[in-house]
């Protein structure tokens, strides 16, 4: 499942922020999550309880109700480590797209080699899932009507295989684009002296 907690953590790693600011950033980059400001405050509370974020300051915003300053948050060392572990963890197959969406959006050039590994891992998992489907006994090559039960089973398998194909096609594209970007990055980044 996609962890919205880690998405918030990733956004705070990019730049400390307060609730409303985070909701704006969420809407801009993770509109598919449709998180309310209240939900974001709950996530911030939870992250603070877990010791992953801490108050980093207070900011007075023009037009803020009651004029009270907004609390800004930043990740702790434990929060940074937690985020990095999440980024490196393979995604559950059922939510592969959503989880990889989030990781791609939050990644920087140094993350790309690990993301390629994850994408390859997901491709292998998806292929393994395809391999578990058992097609009903092959139709008689000499034609004749195929029994409806066989046709129905084939239609269902077809649907599963097409869903897996959509996942693999997207993963293949991600892998190709990431590898091209890594190669480009290596070409343009001067080697640091050892």
């Amino acid at each position: 499942m996609l962890s919205t907690k880690h998405v918030v953590l990733g956004l705070l790693l990019e730049r400390p922020g307060y609730g409303y600011d985070l909701q704006q950033r969420m809407d801009e980059r993770f509109s598919f999550l449709q998180l309310s400001e209240t939900a974001i405050y709950r996530l911030l509370d939870s992250l603070q309880r877990d010791g992953y974020i801490e108050e980093s300051g207070r900011k007075v915003i023009g037009g803020t109700r009651r004029g009270s300053p907004r609390v800004t948050y930043a990740p702790t060392d434990a929060g940074t480590a937690e985020f990095q572990q999440w980024m490196a963890q393979p995604c559950a197959t059922a939510a592969v797209r959503e989880a990889l969406h989030a990781k791609l959006i939050l990644s920087d050039p140094d993350d790309l080699p690990q993301l390629v590994e994850q994408v390859m891992h997901q491709e292998r998992e998806t292929l393994a899932e395809l391999a578990t489907f058992q097609q009903p006994p092959a139709s008689d090559a000499a034609s004749g009507e195929v029994p409806w039960g066989t046709v129905a089973a084939m239609l269902v398998n077809d649907a599963h295989a097409r869903r897996l194909q959509a996942t693999i096609s997207w993963l293949q594209q991600v892998r190709t684009v990431l590898r091209a970007r890594i190669a480009e990055h290596e070409r343009t980044t001067p080697e640091s002296p050892s």
Partner: peptide, 30 residues
């Protein structure tokens, strides 16, 4: 699966393959 010149096979769960956890370089906070 063939893409970008690389050929991949299915994950082999029976071989006791460990979940992949990768080391990350520490991210710079901006």
């Amino acid at each position: 699966s063939l893409s970008g010149g690389r050929l991949l096979g299915p994950a082999e769960h029976d071989s006791g393959e460990e979940a992949v956890v990768l080391e990350f370089p520490r991210r710079q906070q901006s």
